[in-house]
Design a protein around this nucleic acid. Structure first.
Lengths: 195, 195, 195, 195
DNA sequence: CATGAATGAGAGTTCATTCAT
DNA sequence: GATGAATGAACTCTCATTCAT
């Protein structure tokens, strides 16, 4: 954890993150990393053999740092409507700060590495999101706040939609307003109203 | 149209399509194309200057061949429920045949060419899909088949969801069954039932 | 002379001249010529096999058109001072209109083709210029207008200087004023005064 | 200075010099250099990005090695006649060893890079030569050895003539005898006699 | 461990030249 | 004669990867 080797590895990951944010995934060369880190070419290879390995490390770090937003808010006795709204706005924030996010790089990575099915961090994340949302919706239905016949299908649909929003934001671009309207619409499909 | 130059161009586009399907967008080199077409290096450059130009030509061809599914079915007195179902199943088919589709390559292309906003074929396609769906939903609402307060928002939501499905199919993979459930769910949000 | 083949050849030479003026010698490709002439690639090869052959034809044409300025003026009973002045100003004009002249291209050509010694048009021109100037100076000396011990050496020196001016104009650039001062100086070395 | 990188750079410059002498400027490819140096393609690019950069380095080296002939001789109480004679003979030597000289390549380089006006080494050299000669002539006039009304004009004229000789030597060729006669003539224009 | 010079495969691109029509 | 599509050799330049120090 605190040993020198791990420290250096973390340093490289941190610096690389910025590079992946800026240049995406494929465009990044080992040279870019070396320059961003101010270390030697050979030195980098001691820790990471290629950009794929490095990007996966960045994603892993990312995953660790990510707050499980739904869970975090759940402790309070906030209403399901509020929880859903919080979740959707988290996503919105994520989508809008695309310049500082890894999502472009992540998509590029995923398109290149379709083989890796279940051992893939991003996919795990999506699946856990589906589970979380399912719980949230189920709770909401029980408490008669949310109107939904099939919580799992609804959770999946929501996650697909958010993926679509992320990808659309990266490609055609989406404004804050576009996203607000979308959130309002989604809330509506659950019989919820944006306060 | 039928002149030799156009024929050769079309031949190259056709052969390239297969290459883009197999290798995506970025990984494709001019050499790959040259080999797939069985022509000379210089020969290819007579028709296309780089893979971007070539891929855009492939997309254009693709767009030409695509059937405007909603419109095509509209002439009949099919119900909005049926039209929606037809549309969603077209998308499903498209998504499932991902091996033969260009969508992976298209996403890669879009990620590389974020600047080009409106003059982009793919984006045009998405926007026209939104318009078509809005019409379909509006008609459905008028005929009291479809239950929807905001047809445009619904149309957009649907298109985002489909984008999400496409992307998810490419990255984590989706089965026919996954898609059937999703279609059923979407139909449900419009108060429609899968026959 | 008037046959079709000769006409076409002349047409190509004429069009090529402009290309050589603009791009120099080495930078000119057969493609440039083909485009400037609006003829086919193969068509050009029927008349000229490469840019060297073509440039030599341009030079030859050039030589034909050139007026032998000293000779032309000699018929009149103008003084040697005037004749010298006319000659130097002809050179000045030539040097200043470097954009429209072939001199840059010619130097490039000469540097590439040092082998061709005496059968070279440009060299012939220089030698004939030396001869002409020698005559002019000798006449001037006889008529006691010009002060010169060794007309041939003076003629050669003048030609070298003019070559130097041409080359300097092409490389570091020379203004009209620079050239006027130079002319005045040269005239002075012959004991002549600019009127 | 003595570090490895500089050593290698100098090694490349030295080897390249021979290539530029032999092939001129434009005809030289990075491959030629690579082969002459016995290094790898990529290795060369670590030091020089293109032949222009490389040739400029060769010129710079050349400039460093060049002896400032006039100045060097000035310390002694040699006569202006001797100084001028020394200078002209230095030029003669330079011109005659054209096979080993860079002048052909230099002219090619200058023709290609006409834009760069003052920040050009060759042009700086010419200008400093003019200045040196002006001083020499002015001194000679003061000491009543040299006969000249306008030292600056004379200095410029001399430099142009030498440029002309260099260029003529490269194109039509000049013998040692040709140059001796020319030197004698030039000396004469200053009222100096070759001893 | 760490360095960074060196390697060489391979991508992109341009052109002179040929040749079937 | 005339065309212009096609060829392929040659050049530039970039990187992942290695290895002596």
């Amino acid at each position: 954890m605190g040993d020198k080797s791990t420290q250096k590895k973390n340093y490289i990951i941190e610096k690389s993150r910025a590079v992946f944010q800026k240049k995406g995934y494929r465009a990044v060369t080992m040279k870019d990393i070396v320059e961003a880190c101010g270390i030697s070419r050979g030195g980098l290879y001691l820790y990471f053999s290629n950009t794929k390995e490095l990007f996966e490390a960045v994603l892993e770090q990312e995953e660790k740092d990510a707050k499980t937003t739904i869970d975090a808010s759940r402790d309070n006795d906030t209403t399901p409507a509020t929880l859903m709204f919080i979740y959707l706005n988290e996503q919105k924030k994520e989508i809008l700060k695309k310049k500082e996010s890894l999502s472009a790089a992540t998509y590029e990575y995923l398109f290149e590495n379709k083989t890796a099915k279940n051992d893939n961090l991003v996919i795990k994340r999506i699946n856990s999101d589906i589970d979380e949302l399912e719980k949230l919706i189920t709770d909401g239905v029980k408490q008669e706040w949310i109107d939904c016949d099939s919580p799992r299908a609804a959770a999946k649909n929501l996650v697909y939609t958010i993926e679509g929003l992320k990808v659309t934001a990266q490609t055609m671009g989406l404004t804050s307003d576009d996203l607000d309207k979308e959130i309002e619409y989604i809330m509506g499909t659950f019989g919820l109203v944006v306060e």
